[in-house]
Design a protein around this nucleic acid. Sequence first.
DNA 1: CTGTGGCTAACCACT
DNA 2: TTAGCCACAG
Length: 793
Amino acid sequence: MSSFSDDDAFEAAAAPRVPLSQRAMGGFAQPYLEGLNPAQREAVEALNGPVLMLAGAGTGKTKALTARIAHLLATRSAQPNEILAVTFTNKAAREMKTRVGALTGHIEGMPWLGTFHAICVKLLRRHAELVGLKTNFTILDTDDQLRLLKQQVAAAEIDDKRWPARMLSGIIDGWKNKAWVPSQVPVAESSAFDGKGIELYAAYQQRLKDLNACDFGDLLLHMVTIFQTHDGVLKEYQERFKYILVDEYQDTNVAQYMWLRLLAQGHKNICCVGDDDQSIYGWRGAEVGNILRFEKDFPGATVVRLEQNYRSTGHILGAAAGVIAANKGRLGKTLFTDGDDGEQVRLIGHWDGETEARWIGEEIEAMQRGTRGIDPMALNDMAILVRASHQMRAFEDRFLTIGLPYRVIGGPRFYERMEIRDAMAYFRLAVSQDDDLAFERIVNTPKRGLGDKAVQTIQTTARTNGVNLVEGARLCVEGGLIKGKGGAALRELVQGLDRWFAQLRAEADTHVEVAEMILDESGYTTFWQNDKTPEAPGRLENLKELVKALENFENLQGFLEHVSLIMDNAQDEQDDKVTIMTLHAAKGLEFPAVFLPGWEDGLFPSQRSMDESGLKGLEEERRLAYVGITRAEQHCCISFAANRLVYGQWQSQMASRFIDELPEDHVEVLTASGLYGGGMSAAANPASVGMGSHLHDKAASADVYNSPGWRRLQSRSQQRPVAQPQESRNMVIDMTASSSHTVGDRVFHQKFGYGEVMEIEGDKLVIEFDKAGEKKVVAKFVVGSAQADDVPF
DNA sequence: CTGTGGCTAACCACT
DNA sequence: TTAGCCACAG
């Protein structure tokens, strides 16, 4: 519960509650040291000066980190409120809190353990006036931010076709990540956004100030500014934080780095934990350089390497090591395990994305039943990790058809859903009528007959009178500026807002009741009840869930604060389900079995990241591959497809270059799935069995044959017995390989059954299928531009 | 003021 | 393929 009013850490009692058992031992009992290996122990006990803990995947860094905190407390080196411990995600913060609690007995004692953003909010609330904000400033989400920037772009009369607000938002975020306020943006950047970027940035910051708001990047930026310009404030915190601990240091951006440096200049007791091989947030401004430079930045630092892996089998570690070895300029770690080599990493190519999804589905079922030669596994122990969220769809489709339970992590988050945002905007307005952005969002939601024109009028009125939009709306109603149906509805809305505002303060009802009242009286609930789209019931459910979530907070403000910083959504763990998530979301997690689909050049490594960042981009993609493999404990299966549907277009894919980087000894190559020559075409053209047979043009065909991934798969599969067609449903004739067909060929197609080739027109095949009855169905297969329905499977 | 159809651009990851 | 935007009609 992180409402900011209740736990002001400065006033929090500092007395540590040492468990009786330890007190009886005179503080010498150090159970938290048990089970630590020598390296971990060194990192825990090095209490003087900077420490860099290079912790490879699965080497127990959280254990070391929490033990270090316990050690600080037990040795009385610091009080709980003198330790600053920062993480990136709320989940990591929560876990650390729990584990420290379990280790030391004080659960509530760590007021400064949290995410960068949560800690900065806490600090900024105290010093808001130093950057021209009031202490009750609001934190804008991406949506609000974009809306604001859109207005700015429009006001500057810039063509938002060529210069979209989206792009501006990205540029400004980038600058904020580098800790540049508008006046600090270097000249080299002045051409950004049609030469107006810096100007717009300044205007945007001013607008935020007027709104008494800040965006995500500001939380850090403002604190860095305050520390740089107010020595007294900086001193206060330098003295307060005797020990600083930083998790995932490789993901820090420049602003976070500066923030940490400024604070660490006091006692210099900063302990950073990270893994340069797992830096995967470059696109968000993370600087791997921060960790690579650590020893220069903090002279005399103790560097500890955690290399003993407790998570994965030898083969999995070996495969991961082989991939990451291709990166240059690493700090270098060699993970080892005391455990078995286990099963080799498995590699398999598929005909297309659908085949891949089907194969993985079957594999998962086999593993669950225990019919794959291994003990039965729970679905909860299996995960599919994809590069991009759109890859999830194929699996969802497939799993829905076969009734395999799954959960998707990532996707549109609960608090980012439209209905939740709308409801939150109402709550925000009930808390503060100054929240113009919230007002803009809901004036006409549900529809009140207030369009652009009405909103314009309200805005002008508000501006000329120097008041907020709610006040402006009130003036419009009273002055008769907005008439008719819209005027009446607006009057009702304003009255409603006043009423809810008063009710929240009256405390006659709980905030939960008021929230329900708001959703009811505003007509928002009715709005969705009347909606007949299939999503409506789900949205109503979400609203109910939102209200339920309120119960955990003391007041609406506390809840709003919490939500603005929460970016992860709690997931139900009760049911047995396969997890589908992105590689990014998987960092920090582990699963006994991991599937890594879609290892195709352009998709993974992603073309865009290579276009944008060249070799740096490729190396980050490789680290992503490393992260993916090292999530696996026992089983890891990598796959790719020769064809994929992109923008409704079929594209032939090349196996990812990362596949070639897998060391052979640790990999077992399975035979390509989904492409078994069903008679004719296979006999006529042996090349049509396996990858690449779909190719119609020689150039593209050569591409695939010459692609390293393909070659390897070919040669390896030759060492293995030739695959037998497993079941008839896997049998398919390569419809698009028209060169291998002649008129009169009998063919079999998974969906349409048996048929006969009637004619061949260039790249088109006309096939007459003998479906049941006398009716003949004619289908055309157009190479390269086939529609989804026309393609085999 | 709202709803619709056609056009265009986008498809990467997230605190 | 799909989402988002704009122009236009009702």
